[in-house]
Amino acid sequence: MLSIKNLRAKIDNKEILKGLNLNINPGEVHAIMGPNGSGKSTLSNILTGKKGYEIEGEVTFEKEDLLKLEPEERAHKGIFLAFQYPLEIPGVNTNIFLKTSINAIKKARGEKELDAIEFLKLIKKKSADLKFDEKILSRQLNVGFSGGEKKKNEILQMSILNPKLAILDETDSGLDIDALRVVSEGVNTLRNQNNAFLIITHYQRLLDYVIPDYVHVLKNGQIIKSGGPELAKNLEKLGYKDFN
């Protein structure tokens, strides 16, 4: 599904990714762990098309050159990013944002757009599944949301848009146990043989709820070790220092 070959990325002449390789197949959950500044967020930015990087290497998504596509085109293809810091958009109702988003994607795919009632049904079901307080949806997007509400809102958007590849950028940071459960349930409910997840995290604890197929350690812009779920547990014990 996703293939990254020898990816290098620079910003302001500083090299952040230094030859990263990764393959993700449908049905897989990958976790990327790594110390601060190792290039985790840069990776998610590059996969979703954020501007401002000098990029070398090759990234394909379903055999198509991903780097050539605009951010919205990547979203249309089914790539979703749960932001580490979701943006506030004053004046824009969360419901309206979600409806505009899902219909923009449907339109780009040549599918029938949802009318108000179909959308309402969908959102009611998804919020109930995630035990998400619907009242939040009538508020302005992310404005005055608590940290937990913002992250849960990202997961709600993910479950509504039903992406092929979902990237979670430190979604678990700063969450209490209950919110963490909501996030992991969101992933587990959605997880199937046709989609894939790339979970970027600092901590092992999310991986207790969402069991990954692969764990990778990212350090100095490269994946220095890959393994199964047990690798995350070892990391937690030993710290990143010993992975040189």
């Binding site: 954020k50 501007k51 979203a75 958009i89 923009a104």
Partner: peptide, 12 residues
């Protein structure tokens, strides 16, 4: 950043 967020959600 706001525009990037919207685009990531499929809006041009």
């Amino acid at each position: 950043e706001q525009l990037y967020y919207c685009k990531q959600r499929g809006l041009n």
